[in-house]
Amino acid sequence: MTGSKKSIVQDFGRRRVLQYGAVGAGLALMPWQMSLAQMTSDDATKAMRTRKIPSTGEMLPVIGMGSSGSFSTRSEDTLADLRTVMKRFVAMGGTLVDTSPTYGNAETNIGAIARDTGVRDALFMATKVHINGRQAGIDQMAQSTEALGKPIDLMQIHNFIDLETQWKTLERMKADGQVRYIGITHYLTSAFEELEHQMSTKDMDFVQFNYSIMTPDAEQRLLPLAADRGIAVLVNRAYNDGRFFSQVKGRELPDYAQEFDCFSWGQFALKYVLANDAVNAVIPATSDPKHLEDNMHAGYGALPDRAMQKRMRETIAAM
């Protein structure tokens, strides 16, 4: 590890110390078996599962939080729920928050809520650039930074928009220390061929794409390529935009799910994704505190092995 990369990890480690001061030592980490109400100070030694970011070795909790469709609101009632979501997310061991300037006023809300709840220094903040033109990209990223607050840990090019122009800017920003990591994102399986090309030819820290038990295509080429190239993977659309829950509605969770510490359909979907070691984090989005807590529990306990993943796919396909 180079001196600059080591500094990156150490700086984030200091921010994690601030996290625990902000939420209270008794709530710093959450074991998978318990709800917040059952938490005791002894449980602070039981941390959420983490995985290394290949380019630095920094550890990242496996359950992050997306914000598409969840943090864009002006409703005071919804904002109150989102404040609870943010506090519980950090209390249960989360750090990665992923957003975009295209998600309505999500960046503004996330920045304000993170500061108001005292957890901003605990967060690994990821956002995106989604605009044509060099200067327009610089301006958009500056606006995102103002809304979210510094530092921006990860800046990503959203859906290949003006990719080559924006990539040059991202490389300069990383070299200048304006962002810590850079990457690209997409959300469609039809983009996998181009994703594969970009992952093979660019020196990126992160890539984000869709992967789920209903759409496991990324297992064929993208996930092995990410592992070979040392690229951290963020997974979006793990619930297939809610279609997963429509498919399992009214069905009993199979008894075998308890073998990998799974106690809800939401955890079933997330643990399937996390069973692949090339995945660094999955980023489900929600404005519901109870759903947030259920999502977070997927980061604790055992994960299914490959044979179990096959059994899980067969269960869903039979519905």
Rank of each mutant, 00 (worst) to 15 (best):
T201M: 10
V279S: 05
Q220G: 03
E194M: 14
F260Q: 04
R221I: 04
T201E: 13
E193Y: 11
K271E: 06
D217F: 06
F245G: 07
L274F: 06
K174H: 06
I213D: 03
A232Q: 02
E259T: 11
Q247K: 15
N236P: 11
L188W: 14
P216I: 12
A175Y: 02
P216V: 12
A218F: 08
F209Y: 12
A175K: 14
A191F: 13
M204F: 12
I184D: 00
D176T: 02
A257D: 00
V279W: 03
N280L: 12
D176P: 00
D241I: 05
R221M: 05
G177Y: 10
I231E: 05
A257K: 04
A238K: 07
D205K: 00
R180D: 10
F244Y: 15
R172P: 03
W167A: 03
Y187D: 13
E194C: 04
V207P: 06
L170T: 01
K202D: 07
D205W: 02
E193I: 10
S212F: 01
A191C: 14
P224T: 00
Y187I: 01
T169M: 15
A238P: 04
N210Y: 03
N280R: 08
T201W: 11
M199S: 00
A175P: 10
D277R: 13
Q198F: 13
L253G: 00
M214K: 11
K202W: 13
V235F: 09
D217T: 05
A238F: 03
F268N: 05
